[in-house]
């Protein structure tokens, strides 16, 4: 681990000030410290934001939900409002990591987490994200868990967060505060595809702090849920996952929000699937037909070709679980 300085801040302006001065935010530290130990991350100054008053979880006036960036994963998952309004968020969180980690880890840190690509995490391997221009060892290497969507020649790592899949599906916005003031960014624009600059992972300006994630209001009743497919039953990142939210009225799907994890370089919104659902009546056939387009544009690598079919099946399954059939 490289040496670093450490300051703990207790109010938001102090945090942003320290962040603007080049400090690196640390919340739960559950992933940053790991990466520092592996010397993948070498921040010179850590700014501990874990005590900032950004921990509230509350319904918004419009019927949405606002989650403070420092709310812990466990708190969010267990929160009655979250459970009532957006089970998909609770489920995504409860299927993440382990109870110990969820007690420590924050929502802001969760969506900020870096790829689990083993070449990224091995400083002796080539990785454009870690060391721009050094190459991508995963592209021709062992890439069973890597992305099939949104990849570039420079990077094929997936975005590992489960919660981010739910946020992408629900079209959340990310609230930011930086030296230049506040702004909000739609989730689809927050996580960046690697393109030619995989080292740029989020739409964040220097010193910017995530203050909250907000879920807009969706028509009610909204049924939602998260399915995570993985080799072992717990404590593993998703091989494939699907977040689905449906609003059905008069026997017709009015709103469909669908995203997938484990397949994209960012949490992957499945707009084509949504389009096939809207205006239709739930049926087994519809789920199959809609899921057919889930992997549109997929570019499988040597070891992850199976994800194309598995993605469709995962989406189909979760549509059935959430949407049921008559």
């Amino acid at each position: 681990m490289y040496p670093f300085s450490y300051t703990k801040v207790s109010d938001v302006p102090a945090a942003v000030k320290a962040g603007s001065d080049g400090g690196r935010y640390i919340a739960g530290g559950t992933t940053l410290v790991d990466l520092m130990r592996e010397t993948v991350e070498r921040p010179g100054a850590l700014v501990d934001i874990s005590a900032l008053p950004l921990r509230d979880i509350a319904a918004t006036k419009g019927g949405g939900l606002r989650i403070g960036a420092l709310a812990r994963m466990a708190e969010v998952a267990a929160h009655p409002t979250v459970r009532a309004l957006y089970p998909v968020i609770s489920q995504a969180l409860e299927l993440s990591a382990s109870p110990q980690l969820r007690n420590m880890a924050s929502i802001g840190g969760n969506i900020m987490q870096r790829p689990r690509c083993t070449y990224f995490r091995d400083v002796t391997a080539a990785c454009n994200r870690r060391e721009p221009g050094s190459g991508c060892a995963a592209r021709e290497g062992f890439n069973r868990t890597h992305a099939i969507l949104g990849t570039s020649d420079h990077c094929v790592a997936t975005h590992p967060s489960d919660a981010a899949v739910a946020f992408a599906a629900l079209e959340a916005t990310v609230h930011l505060l930086g030296p230049g003031g506040e702004r909000t960014v739609g989730f689809a624009d927050f996580l960046l595809r690697p393109g030619a600059t995989p080292q740029r992972e989020q739409n964040l300006r220097p010193g910017e702090l995530i203050t909250a994630v907000e879920i807009p209001s969706h028509p009610r009743p909204l049924r939602s849920g998260y399915l995570k497919v993985r080799d072992r039953q717990s404590y593993e990142f998703a091989l494939i996952s699907a977040a689905v939210a449906l609003h059905v009225r008069g026997g017709v799907i009015q709103t469909a929000k669908v995203a997938a994890g484990g397949v994209g370089t960012v949490s992957w919104k499945l707009s084509a699937v949504e389009r096939r659902l809207i205006g239709q009546r739930p049926s087994e056939a519809l789920w199959t037909q809609a899921a057919e387009v889930a992997a549109e544009g997929a570019q499988p690598l040597t070891h992850n070709g199976f994800k194309v079919e598995l993605l469709k099946r995962t989406v189909e399954r979760q549509l059935r679980v959430v949407g049921g059939t008559r």
């Binding site: 689990r116 083993t118 070449y119 995490r121 062992f142 072992r232 039953q233 717990s234 404590y235 593993e236």
Partner: peptide, 14 residues
């Protein structure tokens, strides 16, 4: 490639 316990999978309680 998977020289760690997150990527080398052993069974967990679940």
């Amino acid at each position: 490639v998977n020289a760690n316990l997150a990527d080398y999978l052993v069974p967990v309680n679940a």
